[in-house]
Computed example of a mutant assay.
Amino acid sequence: MTDDVSHDKRALRAELRERRRICTAKEREESEAGVTANLIELATRLESKSVAAYLSTTDEPQTRGFLRWACEHDISVLLPISRADGLLDWAPYDGEEEDNDLIGMPAPTSEVLGPIAINDVDLIIVPAASVDRTGMRMGWGRGYFDKTLGSMETKPPIYAVIFESEFVDAVPTEIHDQPVNGIVTPSGIVTITEHN
């Protein structure tokens, strides 16, 4: 069963990567404006004072506009830095310098805080390959966010940033996969389950 799920996930990820890769510059620009506006609306609605988010890669829905806005509005922002043990460290983001972490993901260059720094934020924004209508999130296969979210005793609202076509009826799921409370796309915000 797990082998079949893993195979299904790999096939779906490959399809989603290709779909993201062939987006036009105009589509990317339009999606960035929508994602930024919707993330701002979400953070404002939730009255967020601190956010854990991530620096998007070229093919992902862009988070940088939102992160700049958060910094300008005195919302503290923590961004992840991948560790060799599969966990995430966190570092404050000030909108300035960035570098690549050990797996090549964009990361801040500020002081590194440990994995538990995320426990103090009031909103978590995560990347995803796809999310289904029950809130199950399928990531890109490395498990960093699943481990982080799975280790948290209490969680603030968690929203994944995806394109509309990546919100689907069902995603292949394994025992370690962690759900999200909602999604943010270029066209809107969907809350799937209220935060407990």
Rank of each mutant, 00 (worst) to 15 (best):
T2Y: 05
T2R: 14
V5F: 02
V5A: 12
D8S: 15
D8R: 14
R10I: 02
A11W: 00
R13S: 07
A14R: 13
E15T: 12
R20N: 05
R21I: 00
R21A: 14
R21M: 01
R21S: 13
I22P: 01
C23F: 06
C23N: 08
T24R: 06
A25C: 00
R28C: 08
E30P: 01
S31I: 00
S31K: 00
A33M: 01
G34P: 01
G34I: 00
T36F: 00
N38M: 06
N38C: 04
L39N: 02
A43T: 05
R45K: 14
S48H: 01
K49A: 12
K49S: 14
S50G: 05
V51Q: 01
A52P: 09
A52V: 10
A53T: 08
A53H: 09
L55H: 06
T57A: 09
E60W: 04
E60S: 05
Q62M: 02
T63F: 03
T63L: 09
R64E: 13
L67A: 03
L67E: 08
R68E: 06
R68F: 04
W69D: 04
A70P: 13
A70W: 10
H73T: 13
H73V: 04
S76Y: 07
S76G: 09
V77R: 02
L79Q: 07
S82K: 02
S82G: 06
G86M: 10
G86Q: 11
L87N: 11
L88K: 02
A91Y: 04
Y93P: 02
Y93H: 11
D94H: 12
E96L: 09
G104N: 11
G104S: 06
M105V: 14
P106T: 08
A107K: 11
E111V: 12
E111I: 07
V112K: 15
G114Y: 03
P115C: 05
I116E: 15
N119G: 04
N119S: 15
L123D: 06
I124H: 01
I125M: 06
V126D: 10
P127F: 08
S130N: 05
S130I: 01
V131Q: 07
D132N: 11
R133V: 13
T134S: 15
G135Q: 09
G135C: 07
M136V: 04
M138T: 11
G141C: 08
G143A: 12
G143M: 13
D146H: 09
K147Q: 14
K147H: 15
K147N: 13
T148N: 05
T148S: 14
T148I: 03
G150K: 08
E153P: 14
T154A: 10
P157V: 11
I158K: 03
A160W: 12
A160T: 07
A160K: 08
V161S: 05
F163C: 01
S165W: 14
S165V: 01
E166K: 02
E166W: 02
F167S: 02
D169A: 14
D169F: 05
D169C: 02
A170R: 15
P172H: 07
E174M: 15
I175C: 04
I175E: 15
I175S: 15
H176P: 02
D177E: 10
N181Y: 03
I183S: 05
V184N: 05
T185W: 07
T185R: 07
P186C: 11
G188P: 04
V190G: 00
I192A: 04
T193R: 15
T193G: 00
E194S: 12
H195R: 14
H195A: 13
